[in-house]
């Protein structure tokens, strides 16, 4: 079973939920792996001990233009949807802007004179952390100046392989990196806050998940802050509320220290335990009985 933990924007508690959910699963002797798919700002490793092992490099193909062969026809530029080819007919100028290139291959197909070839460039890394000699955390991380983390995310997820439970900590937002993460998931948990901003971002995320036909539920973090609008909205929309994590300074300070709430504040363990049970029931409705 693959579940993705996501949120419309950063800082709502996605990492808090992912890492603590991972820990209660581990305590429950579940065969579980956590994948940090927030490759532009991975931080799950802060909460889990262990040195990274087996660092791998993720690469992409980058077009290289041979200016001696190029006829300055501009077709490659016209075909590039990412503004990654800077092209001027007068004065003659053509350059690949590498930090915008998404490795789509369109320019290669566009060039009729064979002026474009490709080179392999590194765009990120995958690292693995072990707990009790078993794979526990896979972290994808982009290098500075990389246009898109999508390839790194896909490789990180495939590196995780098959386990009883794979938890994906999704990147914030609803663009390609988010889509690439929730795409393989059986179930998506959205983490939000009971504030107007939280609700606005949540509504956009849910709209996207509905279009993708992904089953999903909501965890309300910092419950007690803000107002009731979020709860009314969830009821109106018929969105399942999976759990409330109360607004508590103790949680915030444990989190700020890079520690797991379920370890330091055992009183909160049942919150995550119940969340895990509910997610399992939702993702596999047939096994409830």
């Amino acid at each position: 079973m693959i579940i993705a933990i996501a949120s419309g924007k950063g800082g709502t508690g996605k990492t808090l939920v992912s890492t603590n959910l991972f820990q209660v699963s581990l305590d429950d002797r579940v065969d579980v792996v956590l994948v940090d798919c927030d490759a532009e700002e991975p931080n799950d490793a802060v909460f889990l001990p262990g040195e990274p092992k087996g660092m791998q490099t993720v690469t992409q193909q980058m077009p290289v233009i041979d200016k001696a062969v190029c006829t300055y026809c501009g077709r490659c530029h016209d075909w590039c949807s990412y503004n990654a080819i800077f092209f001027l007919r007068e004065p003659r100028r053509i350059d690949v802007l590498e930090d915008l290139c998404h490795d789509c291959g369109a320019c290669l197909a566009a060039c009729k004179v064979g002026a474009i070839t490709e080179k392999t460039v590194p765009i990120g890394t995958l690292s693995m952390r072990y707990i009790n000699k078993r794979p526990a955390l896979i972290e994808g991380r982009t290098l500075v100046g990389t246009a898109s983390p999508v390839k790194i995310i896909k490789q990180a997820i495939s590196e995780a392989g098959k386990h009883d439970l794979v938890i994906l900590d999704a990147p914030p937002g609803i663009s390609c990196p988010f889509i690439a993460t929730v795409e393989p998931a059986d179930y998506v948990v959205l983490v939000t806050e009971p504030t107007p901003f939280g609700l606005n971002d949540l509504a956009l995320s849910i709209e996207t998940l509905e279009q993708m036909g992904k089953p999903h539920g909501v965890v309300v973090n910092r419950a007690g802050l803000g107002d009731e609008a979020l709860y009314r909205w969830l009821v109106d929309k018929g969105v399942l509320q999976l759990a409330d994590i109360p607004f508590d300074r103790a949680i915030a300070s444990v989190y700020a220290e890079g520690k797991l709430v379920v370890k330091v504040l055992p009183a909160y363990k049942p919150v995550f335990q119940t969340l895990l049970d509910r997610i399992r029931a939702q993702a596999h409705p047939s096994t409830i009985a």
């Binding site: 503004n83 092209f87 001027l88 802007l97």
Partner: peptide, 19 residues
């Protein structure tokens, strides 16, 4: 023409004004 670009609006606009 670059205003609505998802990414790379700056370079695309630079290219436009120079062209």
């Amino acid at each position: 023409p670059a205003a609505q670009s998802n990414e790379g609006a700056g370079p695309a606009a630079a290219q436009f004004v120079v062209s």
